[in-house]
Every structure is written in structure tokens, then in C-alpha cells.
């Protein structure tokens, strides 16, 4: 009997990185070869985008309300209550909205993709697709990653609008401000340097959420426990990636726009 070989942790970690790079290259390659799965892509956009809208909407609305309620006392103290719409809009559109919405999406979407693909692996559906000559990467992975890459920025924009509207309602609890004046102040305080970098980083958030969900699901082991582990690991890893991408994006944006 051969001796049991134990692989050191750092080697496993490097192997995992290599696997992830290889999986990403296969994903890119499969976008362009073998025909695009339009119907599955549209179905995934519906599942990922439309089905997450309610959750994103409620969360953003509450965030808008809470931010105004938290900011108001401090700004009133400095006699800067009129700055509330500007403060909210800049912080929400630049940072809080995209990150919070991406974290919500990581919890909902990455876990559901990880669990779905993980359970397909456990029940041999991925193997069945593979041995039949069909391409599971093309059908399952490409469609899901592209759908999250497109839908997360879309959800983020919707979340921004709803969050700012929540801020408007919260502002009216104490002060009176008309919707048109509020909208004018919000729009006047925002320019493309606030919106564009935030929008671009949500594309990468979406890519990370879809990629991590698919990778964890595809590489789960073959036991029922692994489905839960894949879902859990997908959320944790995707959330971590969101913060890493955000940190990089803020550095790049600062260098380019806010000198």
C-alpha cells in the first residue's frame, strides 16, 4: 500500500487559485464558442434581476431613511441642514448604495447559484450534461455570470433611486422639502465622477458574485453537506471580493477624479 500523501495548506491554496484562474479562462472562452444560450440567459436575468428587486428596494429605502435620520442631528448642529440632500446623494451613489446592494446580492444570488450548481453536482446532473456531450459551462456558468454582471449594476441604479427617495421621505418627517426641490438639490450635487466610477465598480461586483457562486457550486464535493458549504462559502468569498474590488476602485477613482 502506498504511503498517504498530505498536501500542505499553502499548496492547496495555490492549487485553488490555479483552479479559479483556469475556470475563469474557460468561462471567457465559452462566451465566444459553441453558440450562446439566449433563453437561459434571459431566464437568469429574470431570476437574478427581477426576483431580487423587492429585496434591493426595501433595503435601499431603509438605508436612505436611516442615513438621513443619522446625519440630520450632526448637520443641524453645524447649521448645515440644507446640505442633507447633497451629503446623502454623494455618499449613497458613490459608496453606500453600490456596496450595500452588492452585499445583499452576494447573500441572495451567490448563495443561490452556489447551492443550485452544488446540488446539480451531488445529483450527477452536471456529470450527465458533460457525458452527453453538452457543455455545462456554456449552459450554466456563462449565462449566470453574464446575468449577474449585467443585473447587479441595474439593481444598484434602482437601489440608488429608491434609497434617495427614502431619504426624501425621512427628511420630510422633521423638515418640509418639496420633491422637486429635493430632486434638484440631489441632481445638482452629483456629476458623472460620482455616478460613473460607482456604476463601473458594480459591473465588477456582479462579475465577482456570479463567478464565485458558479465556481463554488461547480467545485463542491459530492455529498449533501457540500451543498450548504458551497452556498455558505460563495457568500463569504463574494462578500470579501466586493470589499477588495471596492478598495481598488476607490484608489483608482481617487487618482483619476478627486485629486
Amino acid at each position: 500500500m502506498a504511503e498517504e500523501i498530505t498536501i500542505p495548506g499553502w499548496k492547496k491554496w495555490l492549487e485553488d487559485i490555479g483552479e479559479q484562474v483556469s475556470f475563469f479562462i474557460r468561462f471567457i472562452k465559452n462566451i465566444f464558442v459553441g453558440g450562446f444560450e439566449w433563453s437561459e440567459f434571459v431566464r437568469q436575468c429574470y431570476e437574478i434581476g427581477y426576483r431580487s428587486m423587492m429585496l434591493v428596494g426595501i433595503t435601499s429605502f431603509i438605508m436612505g431613511v436611516v442615513l438621513i435620520l443619522q446625519l440630520r442631528p450632526t448637520l443641524v448642529e453645524f447649521g448645515a441642514a440644507s446640505m442633507l440632500p447633497k451629503t446623502l446623494s454623494v455618499s449613497f451613489v458613490r459608496e453606500i448604495g453600490p456596496v450595500i446592494i452588492a452585499i445583499i446580492c452576494a447573500g441572495k444570488i451567490a448563495s443561490s447559484i452556489g447551492a443550485e450548481l452544488g446540488s446539480m453536482k451531488v445529483t450527477e446532473q452536471l456529470d450527465a450534461m458533460d457525458v452527453s456531450g453538452a457543455n455545462p459551462l456554456q449552459y450554466l456558468v456563462v449565462t449566470r455570470i453574464l446575468a449577474t454582471t449585467i443585473m447587479v449594476p441595474f439593481l444598484s441604479v434602482i437601489g440608488d433611486v429608491i434609497g434617495l427617495f427614502g431619504g426624501f421621505l425621512a427628511l420630510n418627517l422633521r423638515d418640509h422639502i418639496s420633491l422637486s426641490l429635493y430632486a434638484t438639490k440631489v441632481l445638482a450635487s452629483l456629476d458623472y465622477t460620482d455616478f460613473l466610477p460607482a456604476f463601473i465598480k458594480t459591473i465588477f461586483f456582479g462579475l465577482a458574485i456570479g463567478f464565485v457562486g458558479c465556481y463554488k457550486g461547480f467545485h463542491s464535493s459530492k455529498g449533501t453537506e457540500s451543498v450548504g458549504l458551497a452556498a455558505n462559502s460563495a457568500v463569504v468569498t463574494a462578500s470579501l471580493w466586493i470589499f477588495v474590488i471596492d478598495a481598488i476602485a476607490v484608489q483608482i477613482t481617487s487618482l483619476l477624479f478627486y485629486k
Binding site: T123, E124, D127
Partner: peptide
């Protein structure tokens, strides 16, 4: 290839 579970896409 017929899998043990049938492996239907659920």
C-alpha cells in the same frame, strides 16, 4: 450513460 439517480435536470 444512465446514472444511478437518473440525473434528470430538475
Amino acid at each position: 450513460f444512465l446514472f444511478q439517480s437518473g440525473a434528470l435536470y430538475d
